[in-house]
Nucleic acid binder design. Sequence first.
DNA 1: GTTATTTATGTTATATCGTAACGCGTCAAG
DNA 2: CTTGACGCGTTACGATATAACATAAATAAC
Lengths: 172, 172
Amino acid sequence: MSHESKSETQDPFHAHDHDHCAASVLRRAEEQARQEGVRLTPVRRRVLEILLESHRAMGAYEVLERLALEGFGKQPPVAYRALDFLVEQGLAHRVRRLNAYAACLSNQRDHTPAFLICRLCEQVAEADTPQMREALAALAAAHDLTIERSTVEILGICARCAKAEQAKAQDV
Amino acid sequence: MSHESKSETQDPFHAHDHDHCAASVLRRAEEQARQEGVRLTPVRRRVLEILLESHRAMGAYEVLERLALEGFGKQPPVAYRALDFLVEQGLAHRVRRLNAYAACLSNQRDHTPAFLICRLCEQVAEADTPQMREALAALAAAHDLTIERSTVEILGICARCAKAEQAKAQDV
DNA sequence: GTTATTTATGTTATATCGTAACGCGTCAAG
DNA sequence: CTTGACGCGTTACGATATAACATAAATAAC
């Protein structure tokens, strides 16, 4: 198995070493928790692992179902609290268009990436470019608004799914 | 009353002729409905008017309450349907961060503006710049994603509220 | 080491947001 | 003047999210 992945810019829409990518996020989570004096408890860690199983964004209730099966609490706050913790720590992100959560794949502590969402396979990629940061800053400046948080989400169809769709259309 | 407003880029965070701004949107709505062969029925028109009363984004149930008081239906679908219609026609936008809706203040038929939201006064401005469009396109291209829809929302504090906060702090 | 304090987990209950499905009325086309 | 599409209203429900409180575990104070 090749380890060519630059853990900086994982892109689920293209081939990557997922085991490596998941493990590296978990390692970072542990280290970060130690450093910041917060606790990566079993539920919290497990939720992160669950999110890391795929690059799909998962709804809170979907996560909760998994937790319940594994002997954790069965009520919504259990999932929401763990997810909120992960989001606060920058270990996961909330994808508003989907009312769902995805593990953070970057190494940066405080970043507000853009999300690229494939409507068909539901995979989510994050991206953080200077160009976008500048565009956001320019907008805010033009309106005299002090930025506190920003949301950038792009919904579309990834290359892999586009190709698959085309193939399907040909078959008919 | 001065009519200096360029109906292209209304900015609720700064002084503008609101009556003019609301009236011009309604005029556009009527014309557009005629042209596209869709009907701006009483409920639909009223919802647009309600949204236009302020530059705040309103929740569906908030709109519904108003409709109920005025003798329209009292059940959620009444509000959601009218709002969906307005969004489809590009006469209103959905602000995802707030789970709420705001009247469209631009004249463009199909546009996907960025939203600037003040956390304190809850006013919402829309903005559509080439720089942002390019940043979005670049992101999508970099990930081989075909854009279908995009969401850009900036939450912060507008100049007016920032000033007010400062004044309050001084008083203490 | 024991006690006090904080933090986390689990619960019940409820709020908030959104939609499916159906019946009736209205309007425009033939 | 009928028929078919559309819109409005309803009931009922599903999905998402949070408040409030009890218990247990971890950390801090003594």
